[in-house]
Design a protein around this nucleic acid. Structure first.
Lengths: 218, 218, 218, 218
DNA sequence: GATGAATGAGTCTTCATTCAT
DNA sequence: GATGAATGAAGACTCATTCAT
């Protein structure tokens, strides 16, 4: 069963038996997740019922429950997908590019500014996930794992900046956290009041200041 | 409907008579809000039922509904209180102190680090509020107002820093946003993984870096 | 207490002690009943809450309960008033007039047609009372008493018609019922679809037909 | 919402697939309606809770709500059924019979007198429906439609009576209303005080009088 | 693999009534 | 006489989940 497969993958146990997942099944799963993602973004997790998802997915109630054992499992799947997608993007810019540290940072800003529409629609979901995670151990664990990898990537960026002589010899861990905080904080505020300022301009301004310093030279 | 009664009382329209909100009434309201705040922090808004609040408040169900027309109204009241309290703290430090801009910033950090326990318990609620606000116009409006005042305070801080010759001649608005983003982002990450780092140390590090700059001087 | 007085009056027991009902009290009672009557007519008995009545009466909740022991007692009082008023009207026309039977009938029609607006607004209440009475013994008893008196008046009218040689020697009881049925039935239909026909025209037509007969003379 | 599901099914829109309302579904619906009808007749609409209906229907709460979106929808369904049944009976006698107009009228009386027990039990419901309809536009519209068809049938009866030379050349519309008023009025009074007289005897007497006239020939 | 009818615990809310002041 | 805060049983409705087919 796909269900077992999925659980196993998460827990990282599956080893022994091959599971055959048909393309139809994958497609159905994806349909459900897509429907749920859109609904969560639109109405929030709490106000999206399984019935809503059923209706939007085009499947029947039993069908949805065939692919996912519970509503929580759908949420978990969505957020896996959500964060994995983000990590992939990060990875491409940070690891697969031959830019200097500063340029990579600037690249990240442009990227954040790029798919604004996608971000606008998805940001509430991530807020919701943070909120959920603060009350739910399994979700929190997922999130912590994700942040750890996020931090790891940025830490490597900082180390590259130092190694290249571009940046000062700062504490890579703490600096990574600072950079992440700046990005997440900007997103948070902008998520709440998207019309109050222009996201990528603000981010560029912020990162520039972080690089140059705010204090008067003397 | 009690709602009308209640609204009337609040708005003070109820015929010609003076509306006196007795101390008893205030105390009952406060009891309910305190109970709700604790429960929201513990289990989240979605998993806290009116019955939970009723039980914890010591009143009866009807009693709770005498003071609040709905669960949503309780949420709204709590978040008003929540943010107003934060603004008050900000104001004390930023406006009522004779410190330089940099010192004020540092003061804010210590403050953030101070009542850690209170913050730990309340932070999930603010996450939740952000999430809620992203799907609910009235709440979002409240939040936007709050952020506007927040930004205003910090903007004045920046202008003071510039006027005093302490800081470079940066754009006060954008810089205020950057500082807020740094604080909120740090809180956000720390709210999700409180054991991963020490909040006020990290904030101090971050602010220091913002002030000094990350780039190598030449 | 007025309450006892009222109960006693209904049950017809009060004899021994004089009860002093102040004018203020009477006025308050009347205010409450007027408010309730209007609300019942507008929204129906089931959807009118004591709170509605309290608000509309201008008194406090405790005040309303000072004058009436329960919502049911308010209903009972209103319907007493309602039917007593109707009986009074009937009595004036049927007993205190020097007209022939046929003319009296015609007079009744005109009367029905007169205060149309009052009737329009009150008719739903009497429908509701019929409905209520069919499930509630005490109310039904009141209603039966009222109908008995109604029937009595009309019976006397029929007997007058026969005695005067105006009408055939029919069974007065059955004929009274027939006349009442005609009136009540017309009101019922008209109450449901007030715009479909003109009430007093229709009643005149109906009574004329009842008098003349529908059959072809041979 | 189940409501949407249900509506979809009723309207037959649910994607492309044919909507088949199975016999099982019909049976369940009928069970619910039967249970509700009995309860409404016994205790009235206002005092019958959904829980009562659930209990009496043998289904679970969710089951009842699967078939009906709300209590109001159950009421509406019952009254549709109720009035449609009455119209069918009328139609059989008035249209599908080869009797003269007078005989058809007499037939109606006998019919009214026949299923007395059923009527006794159902009459309160129709009273309640009238009361409800006077405060509720959709219900009123249903009722008006029903009355229109009722009136139409009786009008045709009157026209037949006239065409056959049995009855005088009266206004068919007004006369139809008069006949209906007589029937409904008799039912109304009898519904309130069923023991006070014998319904079909009284109706026979009333119709006879309507046919013969009450006035002395000269 | 899929369907959709059915389940039942749980939700928020209402409201007639009481009672200390 | 009158107030209005408080009570708590009862109400309509929701919704994640199950299961026979």
């Amino acid at each position: 069963m796909y269900y077992d497969d999925y659980t196993d993958r998460l827990v990282g146990l599956r080893k022994s038996k091959e599971i055959i997942v048909t393309d139809d099944a994958k497609r159905a799963r994806q349909q459900i997740l897509a429907a749920a993602l859109a609904l969560f973004a639109e109405k929030g997790f709490g106000k999206t019922s399984i019935n809503d998802i059923v209706r939007a997915s085009g499947l029947s109630k039993g069908g949805v429950y065939w692919h996912f054992a519970s509503k929580d499992e759908i949420v978990a799947a969505i957020f896996d997908q959500f964060f994995e997608a983000q990590l992939t993007v990060l990875k491409v810019i940070l690891m697969d590019t031959n830019l200097g540290a500063t340029d990579k940072l600037m690249q990240l800003i442009k990227l954040s500014g790029n798919d604004l529409e996608t971000m606008v629609s998805q940001f509430p979901s991530s807020l919701e996930f943070y909120a959920l995670a603060s009350h739910d151990k399994p979700l929190r664990d997922h999130l912590v794992q994700y942040f750890a990898m996020y931090q790891d990537y940025i830490e490597q960026l900082v180390m590259q900046g130092i190694a290249d002589g571009e940046w000062k010899k700062v504490d890579p861990k703490a600096t990574a956290l600072t950079i992440i905080a700046l990005f997440e904080g900007a997103l948070l505020i902008w998520g709440v009041m998207p019309t109050a300022f222009h996201l990528s301009d603000q981010l560029e301004n912020a990162i520039t200041m972080l690089l140059e310093g705010l204090k008067q030279p003397n």
